[in-house]
């Protein structure tokens, strides 16, 4: 399937960012006793968390990809690897078709600047002791987008673009409301002229009315700067509103990927179906939920075979042993489920 995806992506346009079979493993560091035991030849069991497990994802220029999953499914870890702020444990990372191992210093520089990230909590991602002017403008000066002398104008221009009053340039982050802080985070990301923004739960901490303002801002900026987005969220409504394509993650793997309309109209994977059924929707009125049983298993000891089988109402014997691969099930649609094997 990697080959198939590869063929598709090279046939059309070079993806701005592509990851192939990328994984991230977190292993606990051995403590002193364990190191001694290990040195003496004892078998020390250090548990490894497979946060991201063999994921392929190609993001084409100009598209908005939504990445959806519940807490602990590895969506933030994948987003951080794509943004280049977390090293991968395995797999390949391509920027503009060039693998990260083959980058020249110049390409590395371009790749790092082209992808910027916006975080969930703007209070913990903005330095509380710096003025907004420096938070937004520092990286731009360092990277030569503007000069120290022109920093004020450069920052003022960015602040206007994200809907902040440039008169507040000399204030500190705590003097702003949550929505305004998120705008500062967006201006900071835009300051180095990126082509691709990774937004990790960027509106989750905001009130509904403020969330709508920030979502509209994202859409305006997409037009203005021709941006590409990876929009990571647990909120299916927000993702549906914004994305062209949606990928659903479960316990470190992408289980389904499809154009937004197709996915919401006819979800294929049982997990996607369960997710969509359980989202409370406004205007639907009172209804009963038919919740999927159980909880997301621990990524330390994921179930064998399909990770979803213990909660899946359609689980068969094969699901308990064989890992289903992500296969094409229609135009642009991919799903990792044994139920599709028969067809």
């Amino acid at each position: 399937m990697t080959a198939a995806m590869h063929a598709r992506s090279t046939a059309d346009v070079t993806p701005i960012v592509e990851v192939r079979a990328i994984s991230k493993r977190f292993t606990r560091k051995p403590d002193l006793a364990e190191r001694i035991a290990g040195a003496l030849g004892a078998r020390v069991d250090l548990r490894t968390v497979h946060a991201v497990d063999d994921v392929d994802l190609a993001i084409l220029p100009g598209e908005v990809v939504g990445l959806v999953g519940e807490s602990g499914c590895g969506k933030s870890t994948l987003g951080r690897m794509i943004a280049g702020i977390l090293p991968k444990s395995g797999g390949e990372f391509f920027h503009e078709g060039v693998e990260s191992a083959a980058w020249t210093p110049l390409q590395r520089h371009a790749a790092v600047l082209a992808v910027q990230m916006i975080f969930q909590d703007p209070m913990s991602s903005l330095n509380p002791r710096k003025k907004v002017r420096d938070i937004i403008g520092e990286a731009a000066v360092v990277h030569g987008m503007t000069s120290r002398a022109a920093q004020g104008d450069y920052v003022a221009d960015l602040m206007r673009k994200v809907g902040l009053d440039p008169a507040y340039m000399r204030r500190y982050p705590h003097q702003f409301s949550g929505g305004q802080r998120q705008r500062i985070g967006i201006a900071r990301a835009l300051a180095v002229k990126p082509r691709f923004l990774v937004c990790d739960e960027a509106v989750a901490a905001l009130d509904v009315s403020i969330q709508a303002q920030v979502l509209n801002l994202f859409m305006d900026l997409r037009q203005e700067f021709n941006l590409t987005y990876l929009f990571i969220s647990h909120d299916l409504g927000v993702v549906e509103h914004l994305s062209d394509r949606v990928a659903i993650m479960y316990l470190g793997r992408i289980v389904e990927m499809a154009p937004t309309e197709a996915l919401y109209a006819a979800p294929n994977h049982p997990y996607t179906k369960a997710l969509l059924e359980e989202v409370p929707r406004i205007g639907a009125g009172k209804r009963t939920f038919a919740p999927v049983r159980g909880e997301i298993p621990s990524p330390v000891a994921p179930p064998p075979g399909c990770h979803f089988h213990p909660r899946c109402p359609f689980a068969m014997d094969r699901c308990k042993t064989v890992r289903p691969v992500l296969r094409a099930i229609g135009s642009g649609r991919w799903s990792a489920c044994h139920l599709n094997d028969a067809t």
């Binding site: 009315s209 709508a212 979502l215 549906e240 929707r281 406004i282």
Partner: peptide
């Protein structure tokens, strides 16, 4: 009305959300 319109929904796809201006 503004709160309800601010919620992204099936019908709002691709369109701008009707936002409530300003803040509380």
């Amino acid at each position: 009305r503004g709160l309800i319109d601010s919620i992204p929904s099936r019908n709002s796809r691709g369109a701008r959300l009707k936002q409530i201006p300003g803040m509380a």
